[in-house]
Design a protein around this nucleic acid. Structure first.
Lengths: 239, 239
DNA sequence: GAAGTTGTGTACGATAACGCACATAATCCG
DNA sequence: CGGATTATGTGCGTTATCGTACACAACTTC
């Protein structure tokens, strides 16, 4: 537990006025999120929300036949578990750690107390939820209209925005699960990007060589989501 | 303006305690929503929210190439314009009247005043927004994994739930826009349903003959969304 | 009731993604 | 070091949906 960890690594927390942050920090607990851990399952009661700092969390929907799709991704720009303050307590989605790292856990009791004050924290959480709504909607659109190639670019960029560095640890199999496509489809799409010199793939490690190239190749969906996050959460210059 | 119109025709408003409803009603204005009217456009400032009573409104995302997809549908179970109280003021989506009817308009000034009280109205609006989130996420999943036939069933059922009667006025062309597929694809899917005796199609009028049959034929997505609405908004027995 | 408009049915080749079956390659581990 | 495991690459035939073109049917208008 070194000085390297600070709640302000999460941009929602960082956007709080000093006094609010100090109060809130008392009930925050730093936790380590290992790759693959499920923060909550579909329909299960969520005791706490998580403010990621270095971790990335995917929100997934799983179908009866076992196939799944990522509907949103949350990193240090947001919070996992919006249903806790929206009032539903549970959601039909799962939250799985896509990239290991840290997050601050905040139990529902404290969250609800703070939320009911109607102050900056409430305001931030609601604005973030609206940004999340946009991300989900744009994902729906993208699923319908764009090629696996484009979606892979979008996914890489969204992940990259939430990481330090330019390398992500992720097998093609897992990416396929996120995008809701075949593993072979990802192999092919990744091969295309590699041939174009945009990424370097090697057994679960993807190094992004040409970020601008990815942006040029992806569909508009990435830009729409990014723009909306910037608009709604302007204090956050993580991108 | 006969006694036939009452704010309680909208289930969110109906779920308010009598005192709250009375206060809120003072600033509600009944408006007629003609087919095709846009309640707001992508990125435009929304001055008011709408609580539909007999109207149905589609939330659409439009892509740069002009193609569009419906990401959610709102009827008398909900409210159009959640970004007004979520804090964003605008969204990248459009809201278009899919079925003509009435709604109660509530201007942002009044909405925000009431919302800040933190009472039942805030609570209801947030729970509804969570239900909307689920609908959008499930739409994303459905777009990825299910056939046009199944999606048409889902769409018909969602519309039917928000209407009185068993007939909807809607051309195949418009349905195709909602689902983000070709018009011919809808023709084919509708033909299948008609052959199976589930619906009767005639030039922009669809009569549902066998609702149970549609439910049997659609994917799980319909049931997931319905169940979540029932759970989050239990006072509302519109289905 | 003739002409125009709008909505629906049908056909057919093109294409993107699928499901499946393997081959190969990198890494792990006893 | 050698065998097992995991990750990736490749090659099929199959399928759903697409894009395009056009025929026809029903309602509208004058």
């Amino acid at each position: 537990m070194t000085a390297a960890h600070d709640p302000r690594q999460n941009y929602l927390l960082a956007a709080l006025p000093a006094g609010d942050l100090e109060r809130v920090s008392k009930s925050l607990k730093l936790v380590e999120l290992p790759l693959g851990e499920a923060l909550y399952e579909s329909g299960s009661r969520q005791p706490a929300v998580y403010f990621p700092t270095t971790a990335i969390v995917s929100l997934l929907y799983t179908l009866a036949d076992g196939s799944s799709v990522e509907i949103a991704v949350v990193g240090n720009e947001g919070v996992v578990g919006v249903s806790l303050f929206m009032g539903g307590e549970t959601t039909p989605s799962r939250a799985v750690v896509q990239s290991a790292g840290y997050a601050y856990r905040w139990f529902g009791k404290f969250l609800k107390e703070e939320f009911m004050l109607g102050g900056p924290m409430q305001h931030l959480l609601l604005r973030y939820t609206q940004a999340l709504l946009t991300q989900m909607a744009q994902t729906a659109v993208c699923n319908r209209h764009h090629s696996v190639d484009q979606q892979l670019c979008r996914w890489l960029l969204l992940s990259l925005d939430r990481l330090v560095g330019n390398e992500l640890v992720m097998t093609q199999e897992l990416i396929a699960n996120m995008l809701g496509v075949r593993r072979e489809g990802v192999t092919e799409a990744a091969g295309n990007l590699q041939s174009a010199g945009l990424i370097k793939y090697s057994r679960g490690r993807i190094k992004v060589l040409d970020r601008a190239g990815l942006e040029a190749r992806t569909c508009e969906c990435y830009a729409v989501v990014k723009k909306e996050f910037d608009r709604l959460l302007p204090a956050m210059t993580q991108y």
